[in-house]
Design a protein around this nucleic acid. Structure first.
Lengths: 136, 136
DNA sequence: TATGCAGCCTGTAGCCACTACAGGGTCAAG
DNA sequence: CTTGACCCTGTAGTGGCTACAGGCTGCATA
């Protein structure tokens, strides 16, 4: 299959596929006489693996390790578990951060009465150093 | 105050302060005879505003608009409210996304029994197209 | 007076994970 | 024989910094 078909089959941008090849995440495929890339099922599976991993937020380097494990079924898979567990922790941290941030934004947004910028609580709150809570 | 003091006072990297000046977020300060940047309280307040906004996840362009409003107290502040509300929505969406992602990661991580990579459920799950749920 | 070192300056390049061209070649249909 | 979809390489841009390289200034100490 040509790059456009692979792109449609996996929902991956053509430029991204070439990018993955350039950084060594996908092996260089065979070429047609016209120098077009020619992919097979293995490439497709590998790209799906990469996309699914990216969708889950793994970094390229993490995916490189995971692919490496998947290429060597005889190795111990605890490394894969470690990567996934650490990533899960990071996601949980990020959620906690964003939740705190959402709370502060909600406090700020709720205060706008639609007057002039000079009296605006939103702008005022941003100028504060975060101690607006107990300040008045 | 010199750039190092401003850096300590606001918890902002020196390179970042110069970066903000370069992109026009902070006005160029006066210079000493030795060509050192010389900041005043106004600069400090503005930088605090920027840092606080960045901590809340506003983009540079959004901060530019917010600063513009804060520079013109006679304008209507509904624009500030609009920016903050939209940003809040984005944060909420992000949290929802990450929560879904966390759930999937938890499912994946919980399945590793520590065997060989060839039998690893983590790697297997990543290779799937996300239909692993009802598949077996 | 010499010397060392912290701090400042400019300018450029790197980070991540793409994305978007420019400028060209290839191929099948009409 | 032309049109238009598709493919190629190579380079530069995105956001928001961060990290140098290579050089200047200012102050304390020997």
């Amino acid at each position: 299959m040509k790059i456009g078909e692979l792109s449609r089959a996996t929902g991956t941008n053509i430029e991204t596929i070439r990018y993955y090849e350039r950084i060594g995440l996908l092996p260089p495929p065979a070429r047609t006489d016209a120098n077009y890339r020619s992919y097979d099922g293995g490439h497709r599976a590998r790209l799906s693996f990469v996309r699914h991993s990216r969708d889950l937020g793994f970094t390229i380097e993490e995916i490189r390790s995971l692919l490496d494990l998947s290429d060597h079924p005889d190795r111990d898979c605890s490394e894969a578990d470690r990567i996934a567990t650490r990533h899960l922790q990071q996601v949980e941290e990020k959620i906690a951060q964003l939740s705190a941030l959402r709370d502060e934004l909600q406090r700020i947004v709720g205060r706008c009465r639609g007057g002039l910028a000079g009296d605006c609580r939103v702008i005022e709150a941003l100028g504060d150093h975060g101690q607006c809570e107990g300040a008045h």
